[in-house]
């Protein structure tokens, strides 16, 4: 009788200890740790999302990005801004953006930089380091706290849960001065992600950018990544920026050394 009780207790202890580990180590396609390059930039080293779509390797048939549909008056405002940008470009001038000021892109653009991202995964959180400007993002495998307990930040606050081998993530509280794809950020913008591995060396993220105030419908797009663990993600502090903003809002290049 005593021996049976011992066995039951032992089984209980093992279950408590091993179950979370088993859940975390369900398979290699559930560990996103590694160094990843976005396929959606000029420095890509592999197929584009379109190529993957053609091969049937991207789940979302709407992977090919289309322009976000803005509500009025935001659409008209953007039209005017685009016209101004085009006019300046004809004069070989560029209007400023966050990058030129050495400020991080924030979510979600930080996930498709020209430099790699590194994902470090533990059972309770994923830490994502974007090499560009060394921005760090954390996805907590936990419930989302109340909004008034989260300080707005470039990367926002991300909470996620697993659905099979897909990590489902919601990100809120992205700084209002950070916009994506020329979508004005009202401070209510949210980003949903479904992150999964296509195979051991390919990662896919299906994004849904949401803001009912400015968008007619959620903006959906998919980015893919290729593993390059042979690269080490390094520090990037932007301490020698030779670009300044002129009085007309355009970028000036300072050639003084």
């Amino acid at each position: 009788m005593r021996s049976k009780l011992k066995d039951i207790l032992l089984c209980g202890v093992l279950a408590v200890v091993l179950l979370p580990v088993a859940a975390f180590a369900k398979g290699p396609l559930r560990d996103f740790s590694g160094v990843w390059y976005s396929d959606q930039n000029l420095n890509r080293v592999s197929d584009t999302a379109d190529d993957l779509f053609q091969k049937g390797e991207v789940l979302d048939p709407k992977a090919k990005a289309t322009a976000p549909k803005l509500r009025e008056p935001y659409r008209l405002k953007k039209e005017k801004e685009d016209a101004l940008k085009a006019e300046k470009l004809k004069q070989d001038k560029i209007l400023t953006d966050t990058e030129i000021q050495c400020r991080p892109d924030g979510m979600p653009k930080m996930m498709r930089g020209i430099l790699p991202i590194e994902i470090v995964q533990t059972p309770k959180k994923l830490v994502i380091v974007a090499e560009e400007l060394s921005l760090v993002r954390r996805i907590f495998i936990d419930k989302m706290p109340p909004a008034n307990e989260i300080t707005p930040s470039y990367a926002g606050y991300s909470a996620g849960h697993w659905e099979g081998d897909t990590l489902v993530v919601n990100t809120v509280q992205i700084r209002p001065d950070i916009s994506f794809a020329d979508i004005p950020n009202t401070g209510k913008s949210e980003v949903d992600e479904r992150i999964r591995m296509i195979d051991k060396d390919r990662l896919e993220i299906q994004f849904t950018y949401k803001d009912d105030l400015v968008l007619e419908e959620p903006y959906k797009f998919t980015w893919t990544y290729t593993r390059h663990d042979e690269h080490k993600v390094m520090e990037y502090v932007c301490d020698n920026n030779k670009y300044t903003i002129g009085p007309d809002g355009t970028v000036q290049f300072n050639i003084d050394d």
Partner: peptide, 25 residues
């Protein structure tokens, strides 16, 4: 086209190049 940078390249004329030999200051 340049592979990577943190800005647009509009201020550089990518149809004209110079090859120069010199001393690194």
């Amino acid at each position: 086209v340049p592979a990577a940078a943190h800005h647009s390249f509009a201020m550089f004329d990518q149809t004209k190049s110079l090859t120069v030999k010199g001393q690194v200051a």
